[in-house]
């Protein structure tokens, strides 16, 4: 019984991930933009650092940060607001009557989004590295992969949580996503070491999994920069990220269950906007 439950839900995840994966293949026109757009911002910031004669690793920091924006934008525009649009289209109620865990739908969205975004972010990074002639250290490939994975799980966990909470919003959803860009880039230190914000501000910003994930990756890619520009030791950051993983996944499950209950009671969950 629990075995078929697992398989059913794995199939559901695959089912929901499918349109996302196939989607960017069907409409490749914007793949181009998703790769070049971050590159433009990255280039602008890289030139500022060049103009100011900053140490060379800063260009690398900016490129890593730029790659990270792809994930954040995916969270905001394709995770957080997604259930809301699914509701508008009428898909949400079809998901809700299916005999599966609601988390599978969110997980499918996340997996599909993460997969496609990872490809784009990688492309952005590789082009950036070639363009600016950056040298990264791959001394600890295992750690790099581990930190990346844990960061992504907690980041998309946060996105899944947003997805449920956004159901409470209407038109405001767009504005909230719009608001959560520059301030988050600032707080998470996407274009400068987050340590520059000061300890307490950086600690507060660490609730966004990107913050510590990016800081740890920078330290891993530039091992010698850690002592001067790193926020916390990499292992500490990894441990905190692991905790965030659990917290966000649990919160997303909890908030989704709450939203569903609320929707069933008020009757608004399956109501289309008009």
């Amino acid at each position: 019984m629990s075995d078929t439950w697992l398989i059913t839900n794995l199939r559901a995840i695959r089912g929901r991930a499918y349109p996302r994966v196939i989607g960017s293949k069907r409409e490749p026109s914007w793949l181009f933009f998703d790769i070049t757009l971050p590159l433009l911002t990255v280039s602008a910031y890289a030139y500022i650092y060049k103009y100011m004669d900053a140490p060379p690793e800063f260009v690398g920091f900016v490129i890593l940060g730029g790659a990270m924006t792809a994930f954040w934008l995916n969270i905001l525009w394709a995770m957080a607001s997604q259930l809301y649009w699914e509701k508008e289209i009428g898909n949400l109620q079809l998901y809700l009557i299916a005999p599966i865990s609601r988390m599978s739908i969110l997980a499918g969205m996340a997996v599909g989004g993460l997969f496609m975004t990872a490809i784009r972010a990688a492309a952005t990074m590789i082009i950036g590295i070639l363009l600016f002639g950056i040298a990264l250290s791959f001394a600890q490939p295992g750690m790099i992969i581990l930190v990346f994975m844990v960061t992504m799980v907690s980041l998309y966990g946060m996105g899944m949580m947003f997805a449920s909470l956004y159901l409470l919003l209407g038109r405001e959803a767009y504005h909230l996503s719009n608001l959560l860009t520059e301030p988050v880039y600032l707080a998470s230190g996407l274009y400068f070491p987050v340590r520059a914000l000061g300890f307490w501000a950086a600690a507060g910003a660490s609730i966004i999994p990107m913050t510590l994930g990016l800081d740890a990756l920078r330290q891993l890619f530039y091992p010698s920069s850690g002592s001067e520009y790193g926020f916390l030791p990499v292992n500490t950051e990894l441990a905190i990220l692991a905790v965030l993983c659990v917290v966000f996944l649990w919160l997303s499950k909890y908030s989704l269950a709450y939203m569903e209950k609320l929707g069933k009671t008020t009757g608004r969950l399956t109501l289309r906007w008009q």
Binding site: G189, F192, L197
Partner: peptide, 14 residues
Amino acid sequence: AGSLILVFMYLVIT
């Protein structure tokens, strides 16, 4: 916030 990103970039270096 957008401007502050630049400010912090500037401050980190200078």
